[in-house]
Design a binder for these strands. Structure first.
Length: 1040
RNA sequence: GGACGAUUAGCUCAGUUGGCUAGAGCGCCACGUUGACAUCGUGGAGGUCGUUGGUUCAAGUCCAAUAUCGUCCA
């Protein structure tokens, strides 16, 4: 088998290779893992990407890091399973499909109905799932595709249903009224995490609420202020502080503390605050105390416009240091007021419909929008003379991340998971080290969040998701509810194993009020464990209605590590692969996802879901901003794959992954006409059309709207880092190309130790060290370190030195077979080490290498593995590591660098051969001698003499190193000025070094305190530097 | 307001337990193309390690402040 240079292109054809190699891996079933194996399992479950759209660079990072672990573990002999799948992503997906429905057909979900909308979303899901999985394949991900799951598929649905039923039966799921973030546009609840706050210019209105029948000396009005006047229609109280004097004192003492700690620059402003507070105390305290007494006395206010009597209550939420010291309370439409309402047992009046308009509780304002109502309320109050003043003010407005419309706090029935015990179990798992989070600092956030043990609201007013399996009926009395329960239990389908009953009492205990508000006495809920069970129909027939809401998408994600393995069935997969080994994800979902997986795993399976969690950094652009399509700075991984190849994408991702929180990736445009790349700026990244600064040709961007712009060729958004990675891939390819061209006539045989040269031993030593250290780095998730080490090793050590040095032996028939064996063995090992990061190029080379050297090895010859993906992970005999050999080689490298430096400084043409000699002791001479031949091939320099008796030629360039002196014979060539300049620079450096060391050594404290070895080291260094300086100075003198 | 992270060359980043001349890649400058590779090779210029104090014989590294940027939580 031989190759001619024409047969192997000098550029790696990654597009062709990626397709072939991936198909080969899949066809041979390398990605598949079966549970019935004696081998130790290694499992990763993928963080399932949302089926909302295409994958972005963050996914490329996340999945590359997983695949690296998976591929390495597979090579290490583990029974390796990478479980793939996608997430239905409730609100996000439904919102996307609804938006498209509106745009393309002008319809809302209500026009379509639940069933049809859900069918539409399934169509969407099929399309995007295919696309996403295709993208993962293009990245080279070695997932077990036969096991692909979807959070809404039958397997996952059954697991969700079991989980819900289990928690329901344990009374850890309950329904209650809660103030939720209501998105009036999407008409659904939005979780706290999907709310962002926006600062807008608003007003602060001060209203006067009349006091009913004020006693003499009491005010006629109390003053309250609000940024949301329309909410006053739902006010049910005004609060004052129960102890305004104490509250003011506390604020004052806090300010005084602050003053003590604050830097002088801030003193003035803090002092002003203290003074203002003292004035306020003087002026307002009596009035506030009077109000407090009125509250205790049960005095009532008349809520204007609604003509409702409301009490004054005492609650610490009222801040005596702010405004009038009184605060209006709207429990059904403000989170803080809601808490006050609960503490003071106030009625909660919901004045809003689901679409954001006002309901009948708002009286004559019914059916107005919030905005319209605001205007009207202010006008009407002004007309009544109850508007005291209006201030301009910046206010924080909560917005829905999905619809970008304002959030309305809204009182609604919601299902909750009680978190106390569950959260504690998940905290323990991390505290006691069963689950290890890397980097460890992220454990703090995890523990803090769980420590709050806030109940988890799990219902969502959506159609896309797992519909809550609860059937309910409202009962007017206790007797009725008893009757209903008895009736349910009597149903033929009823069985305690598959059905569980809860009775939810109404939150309004007062019977008269219940009647007034048309509230039931209680609600009976029945949870059914098995989907499609005959009890479902029986319940419906009995007049119970199924809950319309679906579960929070994180509910199904939380059980992902075991649901994908077939839980609740006791499958062989679950037994073998659970707990999984490692979870790799980003920090923004540590609480939402990671924490919940831990507690659900413990609850359902009784075991932690994974041993290790690695949190990887977030990729930001060159300006430190997150990448996103809406900013125009998003890099599409497919663009990168198309232009640089999947291996380059992967290498760049690994190389980026340090332990920091964020990494920056400056973003460039690539001109589609001339391939010139230039930086993206905040200006040009939002243009629909960009002109290439080099070739001046225009190209379009993602923003192209007009036909004219769209007709232009689209320019890609990329980053320079991928180019570096692509070059590395190509470097490896070409080093291998060299090997292919030189392995003709390869005969497999064990390497004879006596034939090993110094450079062979050096390579073996390096290979041993690098294998060990790369393995360690990957196992500790130090991807960047591993990538750097592989890069340096493959490029500098292997290509620039070892391959170069092999060339001489390839030219010698006698030495050739040994050199070939060493090359085949070394390349083989490097391919294996690089495979997890760069699977395609390494596999391509491996397959070619197999044709030339089907059997290879070092001391034991064996057939090479069928594919590098299943080859054994390198683990070299540690005895090959040799400090002595590496030091010896380093001496050679430094000498070579010195020769090259002189040649460059003297401007000697690269091919012009020069002669040089080395003066050194015998030990150094022996160390260097076997390598001296390479000075000719690598620096066009011929060594004419070496030893301690060497005399410098009359005209020469000199380099003094600690171990030796080099004299390059420059007779007839020398540029005296250049040489003098170089020597003087060196002389300066040495002089400085000597002064520093002498100073150190003359310091008594240094001699006494520093480690004796260290002092000795400095002494030696000083002596060497002095010698070198002497040589250099002599040379300078000679030059005149 | 609290927690965490970052600050080192023009840019992106390394720098382990404090220790000899603080490294790499890109970019820049100079030279080089017939045998693996110009997606390359050789050499060079470029940094008082955000600021201030402290500990130490010795600080990019440890401690305390502080500034700027960022993320998360309230």
């Amino acid at each position: 088998m031989t190759f001619s240079p024409e047969e192997i292109p000098s550029r790696f054809d990654f597009a062709d290779s990626q397709a072939r190699m991936y198909e080969m891996w899949q066809a041979r079933g390398y990605f598949h893992a079966d549970p019935d194996s004696d081998r130790k399992p290694f499992t990763i479950v993928i963080p399932p990407p949302n089926v909302t759209g295409a994958l972005h660079l963050g996914h490329a990072l996340n999945n590359t890091l997983q695949d690296i672990q998976v591929r390495m573990k597979r090579m290490q002999g583990f029974n390796t399973l990478w479980m793939p799948g996608t997430d239905h992503a409730g609100i996000a997906t439904q919102a996307v499909v609804e938006k498209r429905l509106k745009e393309q057909e002008g319809k809302t979900r209500h026009d379509l109905g639940r069933e049809k909308l859900v069918a539409r979303i399934w169509d969407w899901k099929k399309e995007y799932e295919k696309r996403i999985l295709g993208q993962l394949k293009q990245m080279g991900c070695s997932c077990d595709w036969e096991r692909t799951r979807f959070t809404l598929d039958e397997t996952c649905a059954r697991a969700v249903r079991h989980t819900f039923f289990d928690l329901f039966a344990k009374q850890r799921i309950y329904r209650g009224k809660r103030l939720v973030n209501w998105d009036t546009f999407l008409q659904t609840t939005v979780s706290d995490d999907e709310v962002f706050s926006k600062t807008i210019k608003g007003s602060f209105w001060h209203f006067m609420y009349p006091v009913i029948d004020p006693k003499p000396g009491e005010p006629a009005h109390v003053i309250v202020a609000t940024t949301r006047p329309e909410t006053m229609l739902g006010d049910t109280a005004v609060a004052v502080h129960p102890d305004p004097a104490a509250a003011l004192s506390r604020v004052a003492s806090e300010l005084n503390d602050k003053l003590k700690k604050a830097p002088a620059a801030e003193h003035e402003s803090i002092q002003q605050q203290i003074d203002a507070l003292a004035d306020r105390r003087k002026e307002m305290l009596p009035a506030l105390e009077q109000l407090r007494d009125m509250a205790k006395d049960g005095r009532m206010l008349m809520l204007p416009l609604m003509d409702r009597e409301i009490p004054i209550v005492c609650d610490p939420w009222a801040k005596p240091e702010l405004g009038s010291g009184c605060v209006k309370i709207t429990p059904a439409h403000d989170p803080n007021d809601y808490e006050v309402g609960k503490r003071c047992e106030l009625p909660m009046i919901n004045i809003m419909n689901r679409d954001g308009t006002l309901n009948a509780e708002a009286g004559k304002y019914e059916s107005l929008s919030m905005k319209q109502a605001r205007k009207k309320v202010v006008e009407d109050l002004e007309a009544l003379g109850l508007l005291q003043q209006v201030e301009d003010r910046e206010i924080e407005m909560p917005q829905s991340d999905r619809s970008k419309t304002p959030i309305e706090p809204f009182l609604a029935d919601q299902w909750f998971v009680a978190m106390d015990q569950l959260a504690q179990s998940a905290m323990d798992a991390v505290s006691d080290g069963r689950v290890k989070i890397t980097p460890s600092r992220y454990a703090n956030g995890y523990l803090d969040w769980l420590g709050e043990k806030r109940d988890w609201p799990v219902s969502r007013q959506l159609w896309w998701g797992h519909q809550i399996p609860v059937w309910s009926v409202a009962c007017a009395s206790e007797a009725e509810s008893d009757q209903v329960v008895a009736k349910i239990k009597a149903l033929s389908g009823f069985d305690n194993a598959v059905a569980s009953i809860q009775i939810e009492p109404s939150f309004e205990e007062n019977e008269q009020k219940r009647k007034l508000l048309e509230l039931p006495h209680s609600t009976v809920h029945v949870c059914v464990q098995v989907d499609g069970h005959r009890l479902e129909q029986q319940l419906t027939d009995a007049g119970l209605v199924r809950e319309e809401d679906v579960l929070d998408t994180w509910f199904s994600s939380a059980i992902w590590p075991h649901s994908t393995l077939g839980w609740p069935e006791e499958t062989a997969e679950l037994k073998c692969f659970y707990p999984t080994s490692t979870l790799i994800t980003s920090r923004d979902i540590i609480t939402l996802w990671v924490a919940r997986m831990v507690l659900m795993g413990l609850n359902n399976v009784g075991e932690i879901p994974f041993d290790n969690v690695f949190i990887h950094p977030k990729i930001l652009d060159g300006f430190g901003e997150t990448m996103s399509k809406s900013k125009g700075n998003g890099i599409d991984p497919l663009d990168v794959i198309e232009k640089f190849g999947a291996d380059a994408l992967r290498f760049a991702m690994a190389h980026l992954t340090t332990e920091t929180q964020d990494v920056r990736l400056p973003v460039d445009f690539e001109c589609p006409h001339c391939q010139h790349t230039f930086p993206q700026t905040k200006k040009n990244r939002v243009l629909p059309k960009v002109d290439c600064p080099k070739c001046k040709e225009p190209f379009s961007t993602q923003w192209a709207q007009t036909e004219e712009d769209k007709s232009l060729v689209r320019g890609a958004v990329i980053a320079e880092k991928f180019e570096v990675a692509r070059n590395f891939v190509n470097k490896l390819w070409n080093a291998s190309r060299f090997a292919m061209l030189n392995l003709e006539g390869f005969v497999a045989a064990p390497v004879v130790e006596a034939d090993l040269t110094v450079e062979d031993r050096w390579m073996l030593s390096r290979l041993t060290t690098v294998s060990r250290s790369v393995t360690d780095s990957f196992e500790q998730f130090h991807y960047a370190e591993a990538a750097r080490e592989l890069y340096d090793f493959a490029w500098d050590h292997f290509c620039s030195f070892y391959v170069e040095m092999l060339k001489d032996r390839f030219a010698d028939e006698k030495l050739r077979p040994h050199a070939q064996r060493m090359l085949a063995y070394t390349l083989d090992t490097i391919l294996r080490l690089l495979h997890p990061v760069m699977p395609f190029v390494t596999e391509e080379i491996w397959q070619t290498l197999a044709k030339l050297a089907p059997e290879r090895g070092f001391d034991a010859i064996a057939p090479a593995a069928d594919a590098v993906i299943v080859a054994q992970w390198p683990q070299l005999d540690e005895t090959w590591h040799s400090v002595e050999t590496e030091a010896r080689f380093s001496l050679y490298q430094r000498t070579l660098a010195a020769l090259r430096e002189i040649r460059a400084a003297q401007n000697i043409p690269p091919k012009k051969e020069v002669k040089f000699s080395i003066r050194c002791d015998q030990e150094t001479e022996q160390a260097l001698k076997p390598l001296t031949g390479f000075f000719r091939s690598m620096a066009a320099s011929e060594l004419t003499g070496i030893g301690n008796g060497i005399v410098a030629p009359e005209i020469n360039a000199t380099v003094a190193m600690p171990e030796l002196e080099i004299f390059v014979d420059l007779d007839g060539l020398i540029d005296k000025a250049a040489e003098k300049k170089r020597l003087e620079k060196e002389s300066d450096r040495l002089t400085k070094d000597i002064v520093g060391k002498e100073k150190k050594l003359s310091n008594e404290k240094f001699i006494n305190n520093a480690a004796p070895e260290f002092v000795e080291k400095v002494r030696e260094g000083l002596a060497q530097a002095k010698e070198q300086l002497e040589t250099i100075n002599a040379s300078i003198k000679k030059l005149g």
